[in-house]
């Protein structure tokens, strides 16, 4: 779907404060996968995703979307933007229209979609984010923070991109709204077979939703693979300033206390099973504590 070939991006001004560039990235994103990208602030995550829809042009290397080199001469880069939708952090800050309808229609109109088709696409997008249809005439600025976020996301979803990139979509939302939103995107990924790329700080989110995770550090991809496997490397992750899910930390503590607990426990369900496994072991008369 998206392919990076030796991509390097350097800022033309090299001030000391700016480290957020990327180096020698090779990456293949498959159609229909749910990919997570994690890394500290300034690790290059944002720069990486901005290459995926042609917002940034690599200094060296090529980016392919559906097999097309997007920086080839004569190729219209705006086409990529409709194929790969990017939802920025705090997307509600981008709103400018007088009513919700025009706000969501903005991308569609830029893409030259016929007015007759626009309405049904907007309804679909509203259903997706879970907003009622009767809000279309109100001003997008009259809503609460969480609802504004949904409207802004709907404006990208309405374009029905094959790939959707979400840069920390849950920042500032309460836990309940966050959960609901991510579930929607999991559905989008599963039921429609679309590619979803999630930039996140929350390891719990990553374990629960992503098929594959990329760990960025100092502009490079340091680790890549199934979240369950990646998170076993706790020490390496900590060195990169990243955290692991809470429940895993508890079981790692248990290991320190001498119990042969597994080091890949991420969900409450797994934790429960592991606890009873350990319990059965101790029942058998084994003692792990000196």
């Amino acid at each position: 779907m998206i392919q990076f070939h030796n991509v390097t991006y350097t800022y033309n001004f090299n001030t000391d404060t700016c480290k957020d560039a990327i180096k020698n990235i090779n990456l293949k994103i498959l159609p229909g996968e749910f990919l997570a990208i994690i890394g500290q602030t300034g690790s290059g995550k944002s720069t990486l995703v901005e290459h995926m829809n042609g917002l940034k042009k690599p200094t060296v290397g090529e980016v392919f979307v559906s097999g097309q080199d997007i920086w080839q001469k004569k190729f219209d880069i705006t086409k990529v933007r409709f194929k790969v939708g990017l939802v920025f952090q705090y997307p509600e800050h981008q709103m400018f229209e007088q009513d919700v309808f025009s706000e969501i229609a903005f991308g569609l109109r830029n893409n030259g979609i016929a007015e007759t088709k626009i309405e049904s696409l907007i309804f679909e997008a509203l259903d997706f984010v879970g907003l009622p249809h009767d809000i279309l005439n109100s001003s997008p600025f009259d809503f609460s923070g969480g609802q504004k976020r949904k409207i802004a996301i709907a404006s990208t979803i309405a374009m029905q991109p094959d790939v959707i990139i979400l840069d920390e979509p849950t920042a500032g939302l309460d836990p309940y709204s966050s959960e609901l939103l991510l579930k929607k995107f999991k559905d989008y990924n599963k039921n429609k077979g679309k590619t979803v790329i999630l930039v996140s700080h929350s390891m719990e989110e990553v374990v629960r939703f992503a098929d594959r995770v990329i760990v960025m550090h100092n502009g490079e991809i340091k680790m890549e693979g199934e979240p369950r496997k990646i998170f076993t490397k706790v020490e390496e992750l900590n060195e990169m300033g990243l955290d692991v899910p809470q429940i895993l930390k508890v079981f790692l503590e248990l290991r320190k206390l001498g119990f042969p607990a597994r080091a890949d426990i991420y969900t409450v369900e797994e934790a429960k099973q592991e606890f009873f496994r350990l319990k059965n072991l101790t029942k058998g008369g084994k003692s792990f504590v000196k």
């Binding site: 917002l55 933007r81 990017l86 920025f88 800050h93 903005f106 991308g107 990208t156 374009m159």
Partner: peptide, 12 residues
């Protein structure tokens, strides 16, 4: 940032 966000929605 805003410019990039609008570009991502196809602003010309």
């Amino acid at each position: 940032r805003i410019m990039n966000a609008q570009r991502a929605r196809g602003a010309k």
